Amino acid sequence: MLLKGKNIVIFGGSGAIGTAMAKEFVAEGGRVWLGARNQKRLDTAADKAGAASGTIETFKVDCLDATETTEALSILGARIGGIDVAINATSFMHDQGSNIDDLDLATFMSPVENFLSSLFNSCKAVVPHMGKRGQGVILTLSTPAGRTAPPGHLGYSVTCAGVEAFSRVLAAELGPRNIRVVCLGPHAISDAPQAGSYTGELFAPKAGALGLTVDQWLGGGAQTTMLGRLPTLDDVAQTAAFLASDKARSMTAAYVNLTAGMIPE
């Protein structure tokens, strides 16, 4: 069991990725705490991930609020005796598809401010509680948008590039404290919309503009990869479990390409 005995916190734990990771981490022996803003959605996610096993708990937190996040993690860290693994899987609606002519500064900056503020606040809050029970691990999430040039994705591409840079520099800062930082970069996840992910709503306008359903649009996206398919939620969760485990203890400041070989634009 890759994660036996590890205390794992997932920010954005009520989403499709957070739920899938929680289920996989519990199967690998971990104990999981799901944090998000909406308690009802947290309860649903915990039930789907296997809360009945007694190895999943929830806590309310808004990662855009630095004080609230710090206080929530201070209470949790003291109660459970330390945190081994932390993952930020928070997500925010943003613009995809508008070129600079149709963007205003606020729309451009929205994903930059939301995603990076959430990441900064959650990492700052969790770091004091890591490395006490052995090596600590922080997993971040990006997408190919940070490394390719998709038109109409100015704000989101800058955000993803920022997440990757943040992860590298944070890894350099925390390495001496025995804390690893790894960035996981999946392509669009094929089954995420059906699992309730916000990406269903995010992709709908782009699909509709081509006269396609979201599933059809994702099918076209699969043809832009070397393997002819997109990653699934299970792919993301299983890879995250390995990266969070001691099997990957020498990996830090790394970007893990989980795109099924996306062909660069």
Score class of each variant (00 low, 15 high):
18 G>A: 11
192 A>L: 10
3 L>K: 08
240 A>P: 03
86 A>S: 14
80 I>S: 05
243 L>V: 13
219 G>R: 06
87 I>F: 07
49 A>I: 05
65 D>A: 03
84 D>F: 15
77 G>T: 06
68 E>R: 14
69 T>E: 01
235 D>L: 03
243 L>K: 13
145 A>W: 15
118 S>G: 08
207 A>Q: 10
71 E>T: 15
129 H>C: 05
113 E>Q: 12
124 K>A: 15
16 A>I: 04
49 A>K: 13
108 F>P: 00
125 A>G: 11
185 G>A: 08
182 V>Y: 05
75 I>C: 01
115 F>S: 07
185 G>D: 06
15 G>A: 06
192 A>H: 15
185 G>K: 07
111 P>M: 00
50 G>F: 07
262 M>F: 15
209 A>Y: 01
149 A>L: 05
197 S>A: 13
56 I>N: 01
214 V>K: 13
230 L>Y: 13
199 T>P: 05
223 Q>P: 02
147 R>M: 12
46 A>L: 12
116 L>G: 03
199 T>W: 02
95 D>R: 03
68 E>Q: 15
149 A>M: 02
110 S>C: 04
198 Y>P: 10
114 N>S: 15
163 V>N: 09
135 Q>S: 05
67 T>W: 08
128 P>G: 00
103 L>S: 00
205 P>S: 13
217 W>D: 05
101 D>G: 06
145 A>D: 06
180 R>I: 02
163 V>I: 15
35 G>N: 06
189 I>D: 04
200 G>Q: 10
84 D>T: 12
247 K>G: 08
65 D>M: 09
170 L>M: 07
177 R>H: 14
16 A>R: 01
30 G>P: 04
159 T>N: 02
119 L>Y: 14
199 T>V: 09
224 T>R: 05
190 S>C: 06
97 G>R: 08
147 R>S: 12
83 I>R: 11
78 A>V: 00
26 V>K: 07
231 P>C: 14
260 A>H: 13
12 G>E: 12
242 F>I: 11
177 R>W: 04
57 E>F: 03
168 R>C: 02
241 A>T: 03
197 S>D: 04
34 L>Y: 05
189 I>C: 07
104 D>M: 10
221 G>Y: 15
84 D>P: 09
133 R>S: 02
